[in-house]
């Protein structure tokens, strides 16, 4: 089950209202695109979903339960994984270790068992490695498995972030500008990949994106934010023709 419900969420930074009563839902199995001009509050909302920002009003529930009392590291446990807009990889680790680190919530081993290499820890480690190998295969990372992340091309690092997030077996995947910095072909590939994730892994996806083409192509539904409020919500076609959306993006005519 995966059902995310954002209910009249308010976030303030000092005197500035970054989110002003935003409400929408992300039902199971859907790909929902979140768009809006710069400063509309998209990333703020994402950071609320990861529990990195405090919410000042309203509620966010996942499968009927409020997430606002949970610490950030519990989000993967309830099934919410994410990637970051500006890449937040572990820069001194190899590609493989980055992915393995993503498997943290899907494993248990503690300090003592790991230090002593007890059978349980070894089994778990083997299981994590197998899973990481499969994900690297799936996301075309096998060739760079043992390389450090610093030297990798941008597109590869973006795929690595997705692989790392998938290691914890999320039900809901939050993608923060996955197309940022990608070239045309890479964006095409990404669009296919996002559909593939939903279809093959039964993932629900919430996507923040500047790249209109990608959002319109992959989303089942699009939510438009502007100045901290929800401006519109609907299918990509409805959004494309929505007068207020056109105005927000292109400015008032005449």
């Amino acid at each position: 089950m995966s059902h995310l419900c954002i209910d009249k969420v308010v976030v303030r930074f000092g005197g500035i209202v970054a989110l002003d009563g935003v409400s929408f839902e992300v039902p199971e199995g859907e790909i929902v695109g979140l768009i809006g001009p710069n400063g509309a509050g998209k990333t703020t909302l994402f950071n609320c979903l990861s529990r990195l920002y405090q919410v000042h009003g309203g509620d966010i529930t996942y499968n009927g339960r409020s997430i606002l009392s949970l610490p950030p590291h519990r989000m993967t446990e309830i099934g919410i994984g994410r990637t970051f807009q500006n890449l937040a990889l572990f820069h001194n680790m190899t590609v493989r270790d980055n992915i393995l680190a993503g498997g943290h919530p899907a494993s248990r081993g503690g300090f003592i068992g790991n230090a002593l290499r007890l059978p349980g820890s070894r089994r778990e480690e083997r299981r994590l490695h197998e899973k990481a190998d499969r994900l690297m295969e799936e996301l075309d990372l096998t060739a760079v498995a043992n390389e450090g992340v610093g030297e990798l091309p941008f597109g590869t690092r973006k795929r690595l972030e997705i692989a790392r997030a998938l290691m914890s077996d999320p039900k809901l995947l939050l993608l923060d500008e996955p197309a940022g910095g990608l070239n045309h072909d890479e964006v095409d590939e990404l669009a296919e990949r996002i559909h593939g994730l939903r279809d093959e892994r039964a993932l629900t996806v919430l996507l923040v994106e500047h790249h209109m083409g990608l959002v319109m192509r992959v989303s089942d539904r699009v939510v438009v934010l502007s100045f901290g409020r929800k401006l519109a919500e609907g299918t990509p076609d409805e959004i494309r023709q929505h007068p207020e959306v056109i105005e927000a993006y292109l400015g008032k005519a005449g």
Binding site: L52, F84, F90, A101, H104, S168
Partner: peptide, 11 residues
């Protein structure tokens, strides 16, 4: 390396 990403990754 990255405490925010670590927390978001369930650590």
């Amino acid at each position: 390396d990255n405490p925010i990403a670590a927390a978001a990754g369930g650590i």
